[in-house]
Amino acid sequence: MQTKRSYIIVFLVFTFITSLTSFDLLQAQQDDKFVVVIDAGHGGGDPGNLGNGHKEKDIALKIALEVGKALENNNDIKIIYTRKKDVFIELYERANIANKADADLFVSIHCNAHSSQAYGTETFVLGEKNTGRNFEVAKRENEVIFLEENYEENYAGFDPSSPESTIAIGIEQEVYVEQSIVLARKIEDNFIGKSKRKSRGLKQASLLVIRNTYMPSVLVEVGFLTNKREGAYLNSKKGQSSMANAIKDAIINYKKELDQNIGTNIVGLNGELPGSVQELTQVYDGVTFKVQIAASSKNLAPKSYNFNGLTDITKDKVGNLYKYFYGKTSDYIKANQLLQEAKTKGYTSSFVVAYKNGEKVDVSDVLKSTTN
Results as ranks from 00 to 15, higher is better:
R185A: 08
K196C: 05
S199W: 01
L234V: 13
L269V: 08
N212I: 02
R197C: 09
P216N: 04
N245Q: 13
K196N: 14
N253F: 02
V283H: 03
K256F: 10
N253L: 12
R185Y: 06
R229L: 14
K290W: 00
F191W: 06
N253C: 04
V218D: 06
V209S: 04
A301L: 13
N306C: 11
T281S: 14
K256E: 15
M243G: 02
D249V: 06
Y284Q: 07
L280E: 15
D189M: 02
L258M: 13
T226R: 03
N212F: 01
R200T: 07
N190C: 08
N245S: 14
L300A: 12
L225I: 11
V283T: 12
A205G: 09
A246C: 09
A250F: 01
G223Q: 09
Q278D: 14
S296I: 04
L258D: 11
A294K: 01
D259T: 07
P216A: 09
D189R: 03
T264D: 13
N212K: 05
A232R: 07
Q260T: 05
T288F: 07
V209D: 11
G271H: 03
R185E: 14
T288E: 14
V209Q: 01
A184K: 02
L183K: 02
Y305L: 10
S242C: 03
G263V: 08
E221I: 04
Q278I: 11
N265D: 15
L207H: 04
R197K: 10
E257I: 09
A246Q: 04
T213I: 12
A244T: 05
Q260E: 15
K196Q: 12
K194N: 13
P216D: 12
G271M: 04
V218F: 05
V287M: 07
D259Q: 08
G263C: 10
E221Y: 03
L269E: 14
N235R: 02
P274D: 15
E257Y: 06
I262W: 02
K256G: 06
G239A: 07
A232Q: 10
K290H: 09
G263R: 00
I262N: 05
G275I: 05
I192V: 12
K186I: 07
A295P: 00
K203E: 10
A294G: 03
G231R: 00
P274H: 10
E279Q: 14
